[in-house]
Structures are given as structure tokens and as C-alpha cells.
């Protein structure tokens, strides 16, 4: 196959795969939550409710797409697109198998961190553009929250980078042929999972949305597909973080017997289910508690992690 054709096939496959996964998560999350909460979840449309996604899509596409007259219209329209675009772009650097990836970027990990920083604009701008006090508070919380977790998120990955000697995700996976990085970098793994939860703004860090406090937070004024974009954006985010955890700490596509892409998919789904389980199990932090938690506990921990990892690498070499 000619190289450009192959790239396009891979690109389309990953794009479709990610979008289908994100849509499927709507169903998966509701079914899993139902299972854990002693209830059914969606089980009417299709077998086991599998057509629920289709029903949701039809509903969300045909709903009135309303822009409040008091909103800042251009920003209001662009905001939901930002989150989808930035999270989708992040997928470009994730290797699903030795040669199945969109770009083999030398600064892959930095690219992901940059995109994740950008995605918070979506929420902050949505909150601002809605001209609604609840949305505004949601947007403010998102911005503050970003300051809380973004720092230790980057630092938590420094250990992985040091061990692999590269920012390139493919090389990071290849460096895990002997041992997965979750073993030498367990602390880094834990910190990254926490940061990932905050990044996707899910319980216990769903402060910008915080239904019980802010009604629907930053997307209170959104309806139809614009709301759907936030929704899908969240699920793409969950998939992204799960894929990254698998890649950075659990050897990505590496594994016996099964073909590499399947390993990658299995690992990703395990973490996705983990994310859903966390949502079923935990209450929400208050926003100053999140900041305190980030700056006073997670940041020092990730710094210690870097120092200890660095020292060990130095001694070993």
C-alpha cells in the first residue's frame, strides 16, 4: 500500500474508532452505573439497550439548537468545538500498534500536554460566553481547577520520560518491553490517574459542572448538539486518558498471544471502566480542597517522584 493511502486509512480508522468508542461510552457508562447501582440502565432500545446511542444521537441532533439572546454568540458557538478538536488532536500521537499511529511525533507527550491545556479554554469560554451566573462560576472553577492539576500532571510523567529517554510515545512503549512502567513509576501512575480525572472533569473533580451546586455549570445554557459536543468531548477525554495510561504505564500494545491493537484496546477499556467505577463510588471535592490537594499534596509528591527516579537512574547508569 502506498504510504499516503495507508496514512489516510489509519487516520480515518482511528477517528472513526475514537468517535464510535466515545458514543458507545454513553451506553456503556449508563449500563455499568446501572449494574453497580442496583438498577437496569437503558435496556429498551435494541438488545440490552444497545441502540440507545442511536436514539440519543437522533434526539440530540434534532433538538432545537438554541443560542441565548444574551450570549456572546461567536464564542458561545466555538467553545464546544474546542474541547472536541483538542481531545481528538491528542489522539494523533497515540500508537495503537507498532506502525498504527497518525504521527510519530518526537515531542508526543508535550503535544498531549499542550492540547490538554487548550481544552480547558472550551469550558472557561463556554462559561464566560453564556452570560449566566452559574455558567460563569463553572467556567471560573474550570480555570482554577486547571491551575490545580495541570502542573502535577506534567510532572507526574517526567519519570516515564526519564526512564524511556524520550517524549515519543512509540519509544516509550518500546522501552517497556521488559517491565511496564507502572512498576518503577507506580507513584507517577497514581498521580497521573488523579490528574486525568481532573482533566476530564469527572467526579470527584466535576466541579465546573457540579450539578447539585451549579445546576449544570458551564453548559447550563447549551442545548442540542452544542451540548452534545461537551458530552462527546468528555467521553473522548476519558478514552484519551485511558489510552494514555495504557501507553505510558502498561506497555501499550505489548502483550502475549493477541494481536497488538487488541491489547491496546483491551487495556484502554479496562481503564475506561475504572473511570466509570470511580464516578459510581466517590463524592465531589470542594474547589478549594481540590486546589489544596493539588498544590500541597500532589505537586510535592510528583517532585519527590522525579527526584527519586532521577537518583535511581543516575545510580543505575
Amino acid at each position: 500500500m502506498a504510504e499516503p493511502v495507508r496514512s489516510i486509512v489509519v487516520l480515518v480508522a482511528i477517528l472513526v474508532g475514537v468517535l464510535v468508542t466515545a458514543a458507545g461510552l454513553i451506553w456503556l457508562e449508563r449500563r455499568l452505573l446501572g449494574l453497580w447501582q442496583d438498577r437496569y440502565g437503558p435496556n429498551r432500545a435494541g438488545r440490552f439497550g444497545s441502540l440507545q446511542v442511536a436514539a440519543d444521537m437522533i434526539k440530540i441532533f434534532t433538538k432545537e439548537d438554541w443560542v441565548p439572546p444574551f450570549a456572546d454568540k461567536p464564542v458561545f458557538v466555538i467553545a464546544p468545538a474546542i474541547i472536541v478538536v483538542t481531545t481528538l488532536l491528542s489522539f494523533a500521537i497515540i500508537p495503537f500498534a507498532p506502525h498504527i499511529e497518525i504521527v510519530d511525533l518526537n515531542i508526543g507527550l508535550l503535544f498531549f500536554l499542550a492540547m490538554s491545556s487548550l481544552s480547558v479554554y472550551s469550558v472557561a469560554l463556554a462559561g464566560w460566553a453564556s452570560d449566566n451566573k452559574y455558567s460563569l462560576l463553572g467556567g471560573l472553577r474550570a480555570a482554577a481547577q486547571m491551575l490545580g492539576y495541570e502542573v502535577f500532571m506534567g510532572l507526574s510523567l517526567a519519570g516515564v520520560v526519564m526512564l524511556a529517554g524520550s517524549f515519543n510515545l512509540r519509544e516509550i512503549v518500546e522501552a517497556q518491553t521488559k517491565t511496564w512502567f507502572v512498576i518503577p513509576q507506580f507513584l507517577g501512575f497514581v498521580i497521573f490517574v488523579v490528574a486525568g480525572l481532573a482533566e476530564t472533569r469527572r467526579i470527584p473533580f466535576d466541579l465546573p459542572e457540579a450539578e447539585n451546586e451549579l445546576v449544570a455549570g458551564y453548559h447550563s445554557e447549551y442545548s442540542g448538539m452544542k451540548f452534545g459536543m461537551f458530552f462527546v468531548g468528555e467521553y473522548i477525554g476519558v478514552t484519551l486518558i485511558s489510552a494514555l495510561i495504557a501507553t505510558l504505564f502498561f506497555g501499550g500494545w505489548l502483550g502475549p498471544l493477541l494481536p497488538p491493537p487488541l491489547w491496546m484496546i483491551i487495556k484502554t477499556f479496562v481503564f475506561i471502566c475504572g473511570f466509570i467505577l470511580v464516578r459510581a463510588a466517590l463524592p465531589r471535592l470542594r474547589y478549594d480542597q481540590l486546589l489544596e490537594f493539588g498544590w500541597k499534596l500532589m505537586l510535592p509528591l510528583s517532585l519527590i517522584n522525579i527526584m527519586v527516579s532521577g537518583a535511581i537512574i543516575l545510580v543505575a547508569s
Partner: peptide
């Protein structure tokens, strides 16, 4: 519990 963001207890 729901007010504090815990989603499951209310169902139990």
C-alpha cells in the same frame, strides 16, 4: 450523599 456528588448511595 447525592448533594455532595456521590451518585450511587441514593439508589441503594
Amino acid at each position: 450523599a447525592q448533594d455532595l456528588g456521590a451518585m450511587s448511595p441514593v439508589f441503594y
